[in-house]
Amino acid sequence: MSTESPDEPPVGPRLFVQVSREGPWLRVELRGELDLFTAPALLDQVGLLIGQRSSPRIALQMSQVGFCDSAGLNALAGMFQRVSAAGGDLVLLRPHPRVAQVLAITALDRFLPVYDALPPDPG
């Protein structure tokens, strides 16, 4: 799977994605908007990551995602379900304040773990 650099086109109309490995975690740095237009491509890309590893540990870096609509929220919930079904973990890292507020209003932050930094390796 190719990851995007800042010079490459975005995954969707307004979302850039860069993947890096940090210990047991795959950090997926998102920049832009998570919405009806960008969510399907992100779901496809995260689906590829899930398929690459057993018990995937994926951290979505969301500090530069300034907008997330209902399609984006649905994508986050779907990713959580897929990763959990594969025996893995999905966490959100430092969501933008506007996105954090939406997560709280919708109560998604009750089951989508939110951290300031990558959680330690339990093993």
Score class of each variant (00 low, 15 high):
residue 4 E to L: 14
residue 4 E to P: 02
residue 5 S to F: 10
residue 5 S to Q: 12
residue 5 S to D: 05
residue 6 P to W: 12
residue 7 D to F: 12
residue 8 E to M: 08
residue 8 E to R: 15
residue 9 P to C: 00
residue 10 P to Y: 08
residue 10 P to V: 14
residue 11 V to G: 08
residue 13 P to H: 15
residue 15 L to Y: 07
residue 15 L to Q: 07
residue 16 F to G: 05
residue 16 F to P: 00
residue 17 V to D: 01
residue 18 Q to Y: 11
residue 18 Q to F: 03
residue 18 Q to N: 12
residue 19 V to S: 14
residue 19 V to I: 15
residue 20 S to Q: 14
residue 20 S to T: 15
residue 21 R to W: 02
residue 22 E to F: 01
residue 22 E to M: 07
residue 22 E to H: 11
residue 25 W to L: 13
residue 26 L to W: 14
residue 26 L to P: 06
residue 28 V to M: 04
residue 29 E to W: 02
residue 30 L to P: 11
residue 31 R to K: 05
residue 31 R to P: 00
residue 33 E to W: 10
residue 34 L to E: 01
residue 34 L to Y: 05
residue 35 D to I: 07
residue 35 D to E: 10
residue 36 L to V: 11
residue 37 F to G: 06
residue 37 F to Y: 13
residue 38 T to P: 09
residue 41 A to T: 05
residue 42 L to C: 14
residue 44 D to Y: 03
residue 44 D to H: 11
residue 45 Q to V: 00
residue 47 G to M: 06
residue 47 G to F: 04
residue 47 G to C: 08
residue 48 L to V: 09
residue 49 L to D: 00
residue 52 Q to G: 02
residue 53 R to K: 01
residue 53 R to D: 03
residue 54 S to F: 07
residue 55 S to N: 10
residue 57 R to C: 11
residue 57 R to I: 02
residue 60 L to R: 06
residue 61 Q to R: 03
residue 64 Q to L: 10
residue 64 Q to I: 00
residue 65 V to Y: 00
residue 65 V to D: 03
residue 67 F to M: 00
residue 73 L to G: 02
residue 74 N to Q: 14
residue 74 N to V: 03
residue 75 A to Y: 08
residue 75 A to G: 12
residue 76 L to W: 11
residue 80 F to L: 06
residue 80 F to W: 09
residue 80 F to M: 03
residue 81 Q to E: 11
residue 82 R to M: 02
residue 82 R to G: 09
residue 83 V to R: 10
residue 84 S to C: 01
residue 85 A to S: 13
residue 88 G to V: 04
residue 89 D to F: 08
residue 89 D to S: 14
residue 90 L to Y: 07
residue 90 L to S: 07
residue 92 L to M: 10
residue 93 L to T: 06
residue 93 L to P: 02
residue 94 R to C: 15
residue 94 R to L: 13
residue 95 P to C: 13
residue 96 H to G: 15
residue 98 R to P: 00
residue 98 R to E: 07
residue 99 V to S: 03
residue 99 V to A: 06
residue 100 A to V: 07
residue 100 A to P: 08
residue 101 Q to W: 01
residue 101 Q to H: 06
residue 102 V to G: 11
residue 102 V to T: 14
residue 104 A to Y: 05
residue 105 I to A: 15
residue 106 T to M: 05
residue 108 L to S: 06
residue 108 L to D: 02
residue 108 L to A: 12
residue 110 R to A: 11
residue 110 R to C: 05
residue 112 L to W: 00
residue 112 L to V: 01
residue 113 P to G: 04
residue 113 P to D: 08
residue 114 V to T: 13
residue 114 V to L: 10
residue 116 D to W: 09
residue 116 D to Y: 05
residue 117 A to F: 10
residue 119 P to K: 14
residue 119 P to G: 13
residue 120 P to N: 06
residue 120 P to Q: 13
residue 120 P to K: 01
residue 121 D to K: 09
residue 121 D to I: 04
residue 121 D to V: 12
residue 121 D to S: 09
